[in-house]
Computed example of a mutant assay.
Amino acid sequence: MDFFDSLFNNKILWTSALSWFIAQSLKVVHTLVVDKRFNVSRFVGSGGMPSSHSSFVMALTTATGLVHGWDSGIFAVALVFSLVVMYDAAGVRNAVGKQASILNKIIADIHHKKEKKLTEQRLKELIGHTPIEVFVGAILGIIVANIVI
């Protein structure tokens, strides 16, 4: 079996990718329902409900546990990796988004007062996740892995 056959038959990898795809699709639906606008760019964007990062890594972790056992070393590695990713999504990346929002307001105020012409583009604010977005993404990943594996 060559590399591409092995990759194509890697059920854990494809389960994780499916979970990511579903989470990203749900972001488009969530934006449609909550904001009453269709925004297909939410499919490739970061941040928002649910966290596709959390969904991706928890599908990976759950599928790994189901295939290799909950007491396996590879499950432990996947779980630790997932916890770091989810902590980062809700912590560091969420804080960066809040800072971007504040900086955008400062730039808008300066630009409005015309004290100085600014050429900087607005910073992306939707970068991280709230804890509930991370939690929902994680639950989605666990559900997808349990259905697929």
Rank of each mutant, 00 (worst) to 15 (best):
G97L: 08
F75W: 12
K114V: 07
Q121H: 13
G141N: 09
I110H: 04
V34R: 14
S52F: 03
D109G: 13
L103N: 10
V92D: 06
K117G: 12
G65P: 07
G128N: 02
L79E: 07
E120T: 14
V92M: 07
E115F: 15
K113C: 14
S55L: 09
I74G: 07
A90N: 01
T62L: 04
S19K: 09
V33P: 08
V85R: 01
I139Q: 08
F21Q: 07
G65N: 09
I22S: 05
V84S: 07
K114T: 08
W70L: 11
F81Y: 11
A89L: 00
K116G: 12
I74E: 08
I127H: 08
T15S: 08
S16F: 03
A95S: 14
V33W: 05
A78V: 00
I142L: 11
V57W: 01
N39K: 15
R37T: 11
S101L: 13
N39S: 11
G69W: 00
H112N: 14
S19A: 11
T61M: 04
V33A: 02
F56S: 10
P131L: 06
T62V: 08
K124P: 13
T130Y: 03
I132W: 11
K11I: 15
H111S: 15
F38A: 06
G47V: 03
E133H: 06
S54G: 09
F75K: 00
F43Q: 01
S16G: 07
D71W: 13
A23V: 06
V29D: 12
F4A: 07
L32A: 14
A100T: 05
V57T: 10
Q121C: 13
A23R: 05
I127Y: 02
L60A: 06
S46G: 08
L18Q: 11
I142H: 05
G97R: 00
K36F: 00
V33F: 04
L118H: 06
I110C: 09
Q99G: 07
K117C: 13
E125G: 04
V77Q: 12
I139G: 04
R37N: 13
S41N: 14
T130V: 02
I107M: 15
V28F: 10
V134W: 01
T64N: 03
L26F: 04
L83C: 06
V92Q: 08
A76W: 15
N10D: 13
W14M: 00
L60C: 00
S51H: 06
H53Y: 03
G141R: 09
H53K: 09
F4C: 08
A78E: 08
T15F: 00
I110G: 10
N39L: 13
G45M: 00
I102E: 12
G91F: 01
V34N: 14
F4M: 11
S52D: 06
L18V: 11
R42Q: 13
N104W: 02
L79S: 09
G69Y: 05
K124N: 12
L7M: 12
F4W: 14
T15Y: 02
V96L: 04
T62D: 00
F3M: 08
M86K: 03
K27V: 03
A63E: 05
S72D: 04
V80S: 05
F135C: 00
L66Y: 00
N104H: 06
T15G: 10
S54W: 01
V84F: 09
L140I: 07
A89W: 04
P50H: 03
I107V: 15
D88E: 07
G137W: 01
N94K: 12
G73Y: 15
S19R: 09
N10R: 01
H68G: 10
L79Y: 11
V33N: 08
